[in-house]
Amino acid sequence: MLIVVALGGNALLRRGEPMTAGNQRANIVRAASVLADLIGEGHSVVITHGNGPQVGLLALQAAANPGDGAFPLDVLGAESAGMIGYVIEQELSNLLRQRLFATLLTEVKVDPHDPAFVHPTKPIGPVYDEATAHRLAAERGWQIAPDGDKWRRVVASPKPLEILEASVISFLVERGVIVICTGGGGVPVIARDDGSLCGVEAVIDKDLASSLLARQLNADMLLMLTDVDAVYVDYGTATARALRRVTPTEVSGRDFPAGSMGPKIGAAIEFVEATGKPAAIGKLDDAVEIVRGERGTWFDASAPDLIH
């Protein structure tokens, strides 16, 4: 089975954890072990990953040296994708030494008139307490929003329209290569009037881009791995309930946070409705069990709704 596996930025760098190279590698070692187990089950995988914490850190580092000139978010996104992809490829190849790997920078076309440019929702960078977040927003011209019990910077997150390297990725997958791509949702680009491309100041949601990639590759499953074990109704309250198996229509009307679970659910719904194939969301450590249907939340066009 061909599975597009989307690793959440918070699965690679745990929430509230210092954003050091050592912590990131330690988490990627853990992720690589899980992915190796999934591959060992006989599945072909294409690996995508988030970059929210990392691209935000790079933006902060760039802002600390204003005399050097600020790099735009598309360039910082490419930088973070290369950084994370390199470590994922290295740690996976240490476990699967007979396999072939390729990490690709991936351009993703977006609409320059997407309303997301006016209403940013994508959280990037570290978390702050409310007072610190408001102070930084005033100092740096940021837009900010709540993220759980903390606050983060938010930036534009336009809808992905086309994975431009999809044919290259498909070519490699057909030849047994394990591809790491669409890092951070891919590098956002727009088409000029003459058809040429240029980058744009935004961060694409990794899950929506992964769903699009899975459709373009005709994948058998979309698997989104994060730091929670399932999709919950009334998450964070005493009445929280985990969804086990749902149809897209059963969750499409519910309200989920736009900066976290909302895009994952939207990505799952898009994939299931377009292909009739399953999508799933769950905890990184549970990946093998999620694919078997034993854990996580499954989205299936014909599945009954089970809440545990």
Rank of each mutant, 00 (worst) to 15 (best):
V4A: 07
V5M: 05
G9R: 09
R14H: 14
E17M: 14
M19A: 15
T20A: 13
G22N: 03
S33Y: 03
V34Q: 09
D37C: 13
I39M: 05
I39L: 09
G40D: 12
E41A: 14
S44K: 09
I47P: 04
G50A: 12
G52D: 10
P53H: 07
G56N: 04
L57Q: 11
A62F: 08
F71L: 15
F71P: 11
L76P: 04
G77I: 06
S80T: 15
M83H: 15
I84N: 03
E89F: 03
E89P: 04
L96E: 05
A102G: 05
T103S: 13
T103F: 00
T103V: 13
T106G: 01
E107C: 08
V110P: 03
H113T: 15
F117P: 01
H119Q: 15
T121I: 10
I124A: 02
I124G: 01
P126K: 00
V127W: 04
T132M: 08
R135I: 10
R135E: 08
A137W: 03
R140D: 07
K150L: 07
W151L: 04
W151C: 00
V155R: 00
K159N: 13
L161D: 01
L161V: 02
E162Q: 12
E165M: 07
E165C: 04
S167V: 09
V168R: 15
F171R: 14
V173C: 05
V177L: 09
V177W: 03
V179K: 13
I190F: 02
I190E: 09
D193V: 07
G199L: 10
E201H: 07
A202R: 04
V203N: 07
L208R: 11
A219W: 02
L223E: 04
D227R: 06
V231K: 01
V231S: 02
V233T: 14
V233Q: 11
Y235M: 11
Y235T: 07
T237V: 12
T237Y: 00
T237A: 08
R244I: 07
T247N: 05
E250M: 12
V251D: 01
S260R: 04
S260A: 09
P263Y: 00
G266Y: 05
G266M: 03
A267E: 02
I269S: 02
E273P: 00
E273N: 09
G276W: 00
P278S: 14
L284R: 11
V291E: 04
E294C: 02
F299T: 07
S302W: 04
S302F: 08
A303K: 03
A303V: 07
D305Y: 11
L306G: 01
L306S: 14
